[in-house]
């Protein structure tokens, strides 16, 4: 386990009566890709702003790279790259000039700044358009320019707020690869999103936010275990007498629910991977097993199920 890059303790932010973030305890280890999930208004962006020292917490403590963002904002901001949602640039200036401004604000020496800018532009595939005004850039190019800007600092931690929102599938896929390449460089990444399948694709761990609280935290399989309980959906295609097969599947240890979907397609919900046991049971019961497989739970399922429970919880 690496050392902690982000650590918050009972972090709270109130806007008047509205509690935007409520007693948040978050810890992110070095080299990890952590996803903050949650519906709009669940406190994701407020949390990020507090990590950067752009908003003062009402109470609680924050440590980013061992520093206090409220007290040592310059050190924190020199080491942490931040790309806001809907990142904006000076449209009439070229990509390169936009980056030069940022390099100057970071007090990089001229030669070093030049080197890093070329490097970042090349890495983000923007080298050929570097001297065009940002006005002409597509949304995906702007996001990549945003990452290029973040890379100028050689950050230890990168915070991306809704990085793939509004991108076409191709652009989003490309962007996820960028996030993976950041991880390969040993950079810790914190990203917020409500696009679950994308978060699932890149994140090591996720935290589910709801009304300012982090209600769930862990890797996707862990969350599935917690929320869906029966995390594994085993499906089988079997020919044979329905009742016997159904009964045989129901007898399996760990099976929680058996449903028949089509005339010969069954689904077993279980707490573990029951493929081998299910196959044996079906064959022993006299069925002809045609095919079977297991569906790993998606974050969408977890998310939907969690909020379903929350709503039921509040209704009763």
């Amino acid at each position: 386990m690496g050392e902690l890059v982000v650590e918050t303790h009972d972090l709270t932010k109130k806007y008047g009566d509205l509690v935007a973030v409520d007693k948040l305890n978050l810890s992110i280890r070095q080299g990890e890709v952590f996803g903050i999930l949650g519906p709009n208004g669940s406190g994701k962006t407020t949390t990020i702003l507090m990590l950067l020292g752009l908003t003062e917490p009402t109470s609680g403590s924050v440590r980013v790279l061992g520093l206090d963002p409220a007290r040592q904002p310059l050190s924190v901001k020199a080491r942490v790259g931040y790309m806001p949602d809907e990142v904006g640039f000076y449209d009439e200036l070229s990509a390169r000039v936009n980056l030069i401004y940022i390099a100057k604000l970071n007090s990089l020496p001229r030669a070093e700044a030049h080197r890093r800018i070329e490097e970042a532009l090349t890495r983000m595939g923007l080298h050929d358009v570097a001297d065009q005004p940002v006005r002409t850039f597509s949304r995906g190019m702007r996001r990549r320019l945003g990452v290029a800007e973040v890379l100028l600092k050689r950050p230890q931690l990168v915070i991306l707020d809704e990085p793939t929102q509004g991108l076409d599938p191709e652009g989003a896929r490309e962007f996820l690869n960028i996030i993976r390449s950041l991880k390969q460089d040993g950079i810790t990444v914190l990203l917020s999103s409500h696009l679950l399948h994308q978060v699932q694709a890149v994140c090591d761990r996720v935290g589910l936010f709801h009304r300012g609280r982090m209600v769930l935290e862990g890797s996707v399989p862990e969350l599935a275990q917690k929320v869906l309980a029966g995390a594994y959906h085993v499906w089988l295609q079997v020919e044979g007498p329905e009742e016997t097969i159904r009964e045989a599947l129901r007898q399996l240890p760990g099976a929680q629910d058996v449903t028949r979907e089509d005339h010969n397609r069954y689904r077993v919900v279980a707490s573990e991977d029951l493929r081998a046991e299910a196959a044996r049971a079906v064959v022993q019961a006299g069925g002809h097993l045609l095919s079977l497989g297991v569906e790993t739970p998606s974050l969408d399922d977890i998310y939907a199920r969690y909020f379903e429970e929350v709503h039921h919880g509040t209704a009763t």
Binding site: L74, Y82, G88, Y90, N106
Partner: peptide, 14 residues
Amino acid sequence: SRRTMSRILAQPIY
């Protein structure tokens, strides 16, 4: 309105 404020203030300046 150009959405550059948070990006600029995320740089090490006050």
